[in-house]
Write a protein that binds this DNA or RNA. Structure first.
Lengths: 199, 199, 199, 199
DNA sequence: CATGAATGAGCATTCATTCAT
DNA sequence: AATGAATGAATGCTCATTCAT
């Protein structure tokens, strides 16, 4: 048991190392050596703990998905009013910038879902949680009377998540026609409209 | 001139071959041999026409972006009313399925924009054209009285493009919580709302 | 016959082209394409006239050896006195510098003699002619009373040739301890001594 | 430290292997596989210790230059009289034959000096040491009264080195007009003359 | 004769993986 | 548990060579 704990801790170090290495070299270019170097160990050591490299990739994906959601959920929860919660969700749903390691890697992982159902499941899981998060915010707003929803909760929530993912994709891809402020604006406008608030 | 024509035609054959090879093996896994095999030639032949493989990648990206947009623009143009045009834009904006080679490769190319400004420029160009396409449809609808726009044209158009990109991303990633019908529904609902039509 | 003449002329163009290409890229790095480019034709054209590349190399070697000797012999012959002839031989026996294409290529060819008796024969032939050239100059000087030879003609001549080859080797190899002026000085000093002249 | 020692020892094994491989296949034809085969390892192993192959070439050059000089210096030192020292220098300055691996490779390396200042520096260094070696022998002979120098020490020493290099070049190049005995004779004759000894 | 296109053998090189220590 | 050393499979790439036009 103790050994398992130790091993697990070691694996988490490798996950973090891989995360940084992916961020630096790109998911499809990263080598075991890069990960090992980032962890300060030899390549063989990585293989010892992760005989299957795909498993490490999966754990990285899982980790960034969890962290990304956790950060959003915590921030939203900390907001007092539904309006503030909604704003918090929007703020944390877009990548903060090029140095947003978690968001960057998360977007790099999308492509894996194409050919791996395990990764697809991670994406689905994240999507569902994000929809649920927005959904609960909307419910709260409706309950407090802050929001007058123009459409069913789930529909609005799904639209918000898809919209922020699309905007995030463009932000990560250096689309010069989409800046962070534009993205925030579009999301916010849709949110106002969907929650029946007039400017 | 004739010679150049021939060379250009040959290059386009390689672009198509690469497109198919990328579709089969994945952008980051595709080997020169795969492209050559798809084109029915030897690996050296590919290098002969594309000494810089990155240039071939770029041409593939450019090609799928152009085809994707061209198909949308043609379909939209063929529709008679603004309402039909909008529906056509939505239909053609989402990947038709796993066998949608153009859309699949287009999404696979996104990641390249991360580290290459040339690819980022392609994405920006496609985005701008798509926004303009939606914009013109909205303008037409407003002119004919079919649409009563709730927000500025550009804002609605950008939201539509980002939304369909986000939904497309999930469709391509096998997110089981987002199906093609769901995606269409979300887009359509937003479009109805933004164009002032009541169900 | 006419065809042979034409072919021979064409071959000589390739020899010159190869000479320049070798000078630029180095004998062991030069590619057929470099030679073709220098000749302003396609690689296939070179192969057409020189199906065996080794033969072209040999012709280049032969050509530079002949030119090198011819230049020396002509210069020596043009000198009036034995003393001037000897000085002329020394002057033309050392590479004039980095831009001395003939000398550079000649030195690059030495290594081929290691494994090819044909190339070794060329070197031997050049050596013999150079020894003969120095020999005749010494004979003339002795006949006119200008020189009082300290050793047999052949010995002095051979020593002069070997000495200039050794010095030339260092000059070509960028030995910073051997400069052209040093080389001339050493050769001249030995020549004075061997011909019984006092400074 | 121990580790570095091991690595250095391993590198020296590769230097020796490369020396033999160069000797067998020629400097410009030698492949990594030849060196690996000579060392009894896989090609990758060579790259592991010498990621830059040029560095291995340089080390081989350095090694043969050092060994060549060391052998001469030791042999000269072992000789008792100046006369014997001079004879020893002459004997060891000429390649003993086709099987003289050190001399063969040393001559093969000359060409590298053409385009690499690092290699040129090695040649310069060897030349300087050889000149110094001859110089010290001459000084000793003058001190003991054995030699009566006809020219300055440095001039004679430089002439001897250049002369033996030129003769060595012809010996290595299979010049059939220059045999080992001829070469020895020419060197010896010049040496006698320069040191004021009469036959 | 000449060339552009294409080929394939041969090469260095990368890199995950193995293993003795 | 970890590592340095070593391996070998896989791949890109070079380049002489072939060939139809």
């Amino acid at each position: 048991m103790t050994r398992t704990r130790t091993q697990q801790a070691r694996r988490e170090q490798f996950i973090d190392a891989a995360l940084r290495a992916i961020n630096e070299h790109g998911r499809d270019k990263v080598r075991i050596r890069d990960i090992a170097a980032e962890a300060g160990v030899s390549p063989g050591s990585v293989l010892y703990h992760y005989p299957e490299l795909a498993e490490l990739m999966f754990d990285v994906h899982r980790t960034v998905a969890d962290r990304f959601y956790r950060h959003r959920a915590d921030t939203v929860e900390a907001a007092r009013s539904a309006e503030h919660k909604l704003a918090a969700a929007i703020q944390t749903g877009l990548p903060s910038g090029r140095d947003d390691e978690v968001a960057c890697v998360l977007y790099e992982m999308h492509e894996l879902a194409d050919r791996s159902s395990a990764h697809a499941a991670l994406m689905t899981g994240l999507y569902d949680r994000e929809v649920a998060l927005y959904g609960s915010v909307l419910e709260v707003g409706r309950a407090t009377g802050e929001f007058t929803l123009s459409r069913p909760v789930r529909e609005i929530a799904e639209t918000l998540v898809a919209l922020e993912d699309g905007l995030g994709l463009h932000l990560m891809s250096n689309n010069t026609s989409v800046e962070r402020s534009t993205a925030e604006h579009l999301l916010t406008e849709y949110a106002w409209q969907a929650t029946g608030r007039v400017r």
